[in-house]
Amino acid sequence: MRASPTTALLMLAVALSAGACRQDMHDQPRYEPLEASSFFDNGMSSRPLVEGTVAREMPIEKTAFYTGRTPNDEFVTELPMPLDRELLDRGRTRFNAFCSPCHGQTGDGLGMIVRRGFKQPTSFHDQRLRESPVGYFFHVMSNGFGQMSSYASQVPPQDRWAIAAYISALQLSHNIPVDRLSAEERQQLDDSIVGSAEAHPRAGEE
C-alpha cells in the first residue's frame, strides 16, 4: 500500500516536530563524574570511600616516599628521588598553584590570601625552616600544620616532593653565601647594587 501524499506530509510533519523533543542520547542512563543521583540517600552518584581505603597504586608499607620519615620515625633529609631540573620545574608550577596563595611566590609568607586576613605562615627563609629536613615539608603538606589544611587530596606525593625540592631552591636563593657565587654572578650582584644606587641616588641620605 502506498501512503497518500497527505499522509506522507503529515508523517513528515510529525517526524520533524517530534525529532527535537527526546534527549535520550544527550542524557544517557549513566553517571558522569559527580553527577547527582536519585538512587542514593544523599543524592550523590559517587560513593564516599570506606574508612581505611588504600589507593590501588599505594603500597601498604609506609615507605619514606609516602610518609617523609625514616623507619626510625625521623624526617628524611634526602629526597626519595633524584633531584633534577625537571623535578624543580614541576615543583615551581605546583608551588605557584597550591602554596603561593598564602606563602607568596618567594616563600616569604605574604601571599594574597594572607593579605586578605589569613594567618601569616612562617617565612621559608626563617632560621627554623631553613634547618628543617626536607621530609618535614613533605609531612606538613601531607598532614597540614596549624591553620594549614592537608593538601594530600589536592597534590599527589610525587608533586609534594617536587614542591619540597623547590622550597629548598627558594631558601637557597635567599640565603646563599656570597663566596658560593661565581665571579660572573658576583659581578651581576655588584652591577645591580650600583644600578639601584643610580636609580635612587638620594636613597642613602634619607
Binding site: 558522569e32 563524574p33 559527580l34 605557584n96 598553584a97 597550591f98 603561593s100 596563595p101 594574597m112 590570601i113 586578605r116 589569613f118 589544611s149 587530596s153 589536592q154 597534590v155
Partner: peptide, 29 residues
C-alpha cells in the same frame, strides 16, 4: 586573588574530568 585554575580543578591535567573541588577546598581559606 591570583589563584591558579589548578588549585581547585586539580584533575584537569590527569583525568577526563577537570574536577569540581570538594567543599574542603573552599574551607582551606
Amino acid at each position: 586573588m591570583g589563584i591558579s585554575c589548578l588549585y581547585c580543578h586539580t584533575s584537569a591535567e590527569d583525568s577526563a574530568f577537570a574536577g569540581v573541588p570538594p567543599t574542603a577546598t573552599c574551607m582551606n581559606c
